[in-house]
């Protein structure tokens, strides 16, 4: 059974077709990368899939752990919000959008636990420290404010804050964008390891083909609001069929 299933998604912004009859299937534990250039509609697709933006037409279904399918855009707001803070996670390109900059690292990681009803300080703190260690942040930074952290650390803190409730599905919007190359590599490896170890499914938006190759099982290539090609990551990148994908792949600089 799919974890997330979308059919016929369409959305216009005035004259621009941001999404044009898009279908998506995501299976449990699968990482799907949505690639394409700026303006191709990939971030819009991410927002629609995650219920943050309503489409003009089409439906997104999420299958809960009991096997029940839910129409994401017909869900009551409280249920969707509960989903977003328990079963789902969202990793933003700019961690400051998600983190509370005036709350300590430990408080940032613990918030989702407390929102879910955790009421034992010692347990919350222990879990926060465990997660900081997992994202390679020194445990003695637990009481420090995020504003004393580097960009790469902030992104790792955001990931700890998101994964602490063991979500089944994580949406990621350019998670390595805006970071130095060396910092990127470390973060990619961390995401790859955590996602594989926890069996998390993810929808990953990126314009960086190397990121998609490293993290994703499957790729969907978007151009002007349409998915023009989809398939296994290595198949799409090594044997691109669509003219736009061939252009995209051939435009990547070889290191």
């Amino acid at each position: 059974m799919t974890l997330l299933r979308a059919r016929g998604l369409s959305l216009r912004f005035k004259a621009i077709r941001a999404l044009d009859d898009v279908a998506v299937d995501l299976w449990p534990g699968e990482v799907l990368a949505i690639v394409g250039e700026s303006g191709s509609g990939k971030t819009t697709l991410l927002n629609v899939l995650s219920g943050r933006m309503a489409p003009d037409a089409g439906t997104v279904w999420y299958t809960d752990p009991e096997g029940q399918e839910h129409d994401v855009h017909a869900m009551p707001a409280p249920a969707l919000r509960t989903l977003h803070r328990s079963d789902w996670g969202f990793v933003h390109q700019d961690p400051r959008q998600n983190l509370r900059m005036n709350v300590s690292a430990g408080g940032n990681v613990g918030e989702r636990l407390m929102a879910r009803g955790a009421r034992n300080y010692g347990d919350i703190r222990a879990e926060a420290i465990d997660w900081l260690t997992q994202v390679e942040i020194d445990a003695n930074r637990v009481d420090d404010l995020p504003r004393t952290f580097s960009g790469g650390m902030l992104q790792r803190l955001q990931i700890a804050r998101t994964l602490v409730t063991h979500p089944r599905l994580v949406f990621m919007d350019e998670p390595t964008g805006g970071l130095d190359v060396s910092v990127q590599a470390r973060l990619l490896d961390l995401i790859r390891t955590l996602v594989a170890r926890l069996g998390i499914a993810a929808v990953l938006v990126t314009h960086d083909i190397a990121v998609a190759r490293l993290l994703a099982h499957r790729i969907a290539v978007m151009q002007r609001g349409r998915v023009v090609e989809t398939g296994l990551t290595d198949q799409v990148l090594d044997d691109p069929q669509h003219a736009y994908t061939q252009l995209l792949v051939s435009s990547v600089l070889q290191a």
């Binding site: 709350v103 408080g107 929102a115 009481d143």
Partner: peptide, 19 residues
């Protein structure tokens, strides 16, 4: 308030105990 989403208030209490 509408969604009884009060994790943030506990974050404040957490910060107090931590500090």
């Amino acid at each position: 308030h509408g969604l009884a989403d009060y994790g943030l208030m506990h974050v404040k209490l957490y910060e107090d105990v931590a500090r």
